[in-house]
């Protein structure tokens, strides 16, 4: 585990041709916390996550945890889960250990089976992703993300395409497992105001810049003027 207490993003820039997606992001994300990045579609939220995870190289800027350059070991949960459909639940979860590291087969089997038990997936261990429900797929993806004991898990719109009940159960799952395993959550979501209940910090990304950074309570108590149009239609009942 890293000794650092914050993940520092400094001057993070990313452009695709003429289109500037991140125009210089500065953030201090407390490790161990749950930070949610909100914003309209196409404002660069997923690009920010991909830069943090190392999937995408920023054009400029830096990411550091304490004195160490780059983010600490992190896992990524994709919108569509990105499970391998020709592998069973058990094989999907074991994949990072089987392909990397020096763990022996017996150790991998034990770690996978312990984790599947903790996530209530033991009964589905021999099933393929196509044979399990959407909620279970999310848990399998989370199990695969957790198996390497990462310090940070990046969630890219984890509730896309789910009905309200499932949405709540996914948020509940993230909250309870974060409590149990102690990882840092950096999440991208459109689900305002639901995400306020589980987040320690909210970042509002708009036009390539962080326009708001603070706690959900402060945001709800004193929403900045230019944030109201984004929040109000979603806060008011339909």
């Amino acid at each position: 585990m890293s000794e650092a207490t914050t993940l520092k993003l400094r001057g993070l820039k990313k452009a695709f041709g003429e289109q500037v997606v991140l125009g210089g992001i500065d953030m201090d994300i407390p490790l161990g916390s749950h930070t949610t990045v909100i914003g309209k579609s196409g404002t660069g939220k997923s690009v920010l996550l991909k830069c943090i995870s190392g999937l995408m190289a920023p054009d400029a800027g830096s990411i550091a945890a304490g004195d160490e350059k780059g983010a600490p070991p992190c896992s990524y949960m994709f919108q569509q889960n990105a499970l391998f459909d020709s592998m069973t639940v058990e094989e999907n979860v074991a994949l990072p250990l089987r392909e990397k590291g020096k763990a022996k087969a017996t150790e991998i089997k034990k770690r996978v089976s312990d984790l599947l038990e903790q996530l209530d997936l033991t009964a589905a261990r021999k099933k393929y992703p196509a044979e399990i429900s959407g909620g279970m797929k999310k848990r399998v993806a989370l199990a695969r993300a957790l198996i390497t004991n990462p310090e940070i898990i990046l969630f890219d719109e984890p509730t896309t395409g789910l009905d309200p009940q499932r949405k709540y159960s996914v948020f509940d799952m993230i909250r309870s497992y974060r409590k149990r395993f102690g990882f840092t959550v950096i999440m991208v979501s459109h689900d305002v105001p639901e995400v306020f209940e589980i987040s320690d910090k909210i970042a509002w990304l708009d036009a390539g810049e962080i326009k708001y950074w603070g706690t959900p309570d402060d945001l709800l108590a004193n929403p900045p003027e230019d944030l109201k149009p984004f929040l109000n239609p979603q806060l008011s009942p339909a």
């Binding site: 995870s53 190392g54 999937l55 992190c74 896992s75 990524y76 994709f78 919108q79 569509q80 990105a82 499970l83 391998f84 459909d85 994949l95 990072p96 392909e99 990397k100 390497t148």
Partner: peptide
């Protein structure tokens, strides 16, 4: 299909070389 389903990106995030795998 694996590219579209973000499985190749997933391999990257797991530090697994997708071309090798």
């Amino acid at each position: 299909i694996q590219r579209n389903a973000e499985q190749i990106d997933a391999l990257h995030t797991m530090q697994i070389n997708p071309i090798g795998f």
